[in-house]
Amino acid sequence: MQPDDKSIKWVREPQLGIAGRMYLTPLFDGLATTAKHFFSTVKGDGFTRQFPEERPEFGNPLIYRGVHRLNKDDEGRVKCVACFLCATACPAHCIDIVGTEAPWKDREKYPQSFVIDELRCIFCGMCEEACPVDAIELTSLFDLTGASREEMIFDKEKLLSVYDMTVEAEPMKSKSMAEAAGQPAGKGH
């Protein structure tokens, strides 16, 4: 195509006025935004939080995807049956399970070891979706820190301790969600 082709329509940028050429309008526009936020924060209804003294609130902690926990059953045993479905569903391959025969009469299989590499985890919640016995859940703990990589590899004991830590504030999701949906617990499927 040649530059003098008739199908080409040539356009010109609009000419800036004198204010535009001095960049005055955008400058004042920006200053106005800054001032708006400044005054709204001073007034106290703004977005800035004094973290960690002030904790953020979640709309619905049931659907928040934070640190994992391993739930316990009524007798305080780990609920997990070592079916590997979470490890299968995990797109980051951060779950490592060793299954073995359960020492209890009413259970067949349980995890001898259950390790989640929280550093590899992308907190997508697929493990929670896949779990057939609601054993693995994501809590609303979001500020997970550690001093070393090893510290961030959570074993079974640590995951169970997360349950003990959070169970008061966040009861097991399957029950809570069923109640929220107006159904008796345990009839989800």
């Binding site: 049956v81 070592a82 079916c83 479905l85 067949e108 299989k109 057939p132 016995v133």
Partner: peptide, 9 residues
Amino acid sequence: VDCPICDQA
């Protein structure tokens, strides 16, 4: 239907 813990699954 204990597929989750069944080795044949």
